[in-house]
Design a protein around this nucleic acid. Sequence first.
DNA 1: ATCCCCATGTAAATTGTTACATGATTCG
DNA 2: CGAATCATGTAACAATTTACATGGGGAT
Lengths: 180, 180
Amino acid sequence: MATITELEGVVLGIVRSLQPCTAYAVRRQLQASPSSHWSGSAGSIYPLLGRLEEAGLVEALSDASDGRRRRLMTLTRKGTAALRGWILEAGQPEVAANVSDALRTRAFFLDALTAEERRRFVESALEAAEAFHAMTVEYGRSRAEDGAIGRLAALGGEYAAEARVRWLQELLASLDDEDA
Amino acid sequence: MATITELEGVVLGIVRSLQPCTAYAVRRQLQASPSSHWSGSAGSIYPLLGRLEEAGLVEALSDASDGRRRRLMTLTRKGTAALRGWILEAGQPEVAANVSDALRTRAFFLDALTAEERRRFVESALEAAEAFHAMTVEYGRSRAEDGAIGRLAALGGEYAAEARVRWLQELLASLDDEDA
DNA sequence: ATCCCCATGTAAATTGTTACATGATTCG
DNA sequence: CGAATCATGTAACAATTTACATGGGGAT
């Protein structure tokens, strides 16, 4: 069972939760996520689903009953197994280490700025982080409708967003100390 | 000033903090990060620094005084400006939304698993998340030597890792409730 | 009618990964 | 003297982004 990529895992998971569904519905779901890590562009999703189909992980059923041509996707048994395998990789150190945060990344280079710019950075980053946190909360609410697991999964994003706000507040406070 | 990519920003920042330094030193710095988001492979860094050089953001000084041929990189004034511009993008919503976490991503699809598998997922994920948290703490200690800003930046990663552990502990507890 | 959403795709360009290739130095 | 580390690169491949191209349905 050739290992699948992150995006492939996500797409399998979305297809399973919506099946039978169109590629377009998968894209919308991706775009609804507060994280912009994947664009959910047509150029990524259609070729990707084509690969999954060729590999026998999803099956498509063409339908044009209402004039609109569609391809309705479903996971095959093999696809379900691949999805489960991918989820259960979670114990591997590489998976736990696969994190990123563009805001935090920038903070590592703060000494390239003047004290004034630094303050501007932290203030605007804090604002953006708070707005993002609000988005994760909103997203959690929408996910809660899909059951307990959806809510719990979204909670992880809320906690992370919350932690980032707290961190930036402390950064701001320590800049104040510096000035004093 | 054409906007630069995330990895380009990071590389500019690292070069600035170590300059004059080799591409190899930049790679090591990237690889020392607890996050595996970028591999810091030769295949990414050498071409990237080539592009930055061509764009006039970094300058290279060839040196082979001790027999080992090296190219010592320095930021140009233009490179410093680009770095500052990149850092100060932090207020934009897209930057704050540019986050990812492979562990959390998988949790969204937990209902594809049986109750038993779910428990296995959370237990192994928690273990991996704790190990990762320990790595961030260790990393923070090493960064602290480079001054207050380095320590504060690393703290963001620690908080995020901490929040993830907390979240998984709650997930585990809610699975227990479910079983009972 | 016109605009927005549904729906499917392709093409070019960029970016990054793995693997390969080479060679000098340093440490045990 | 052999292994690890320093050091620089390239080649083939994979994956994704942006932009383009097309068309039907439903609402105002």
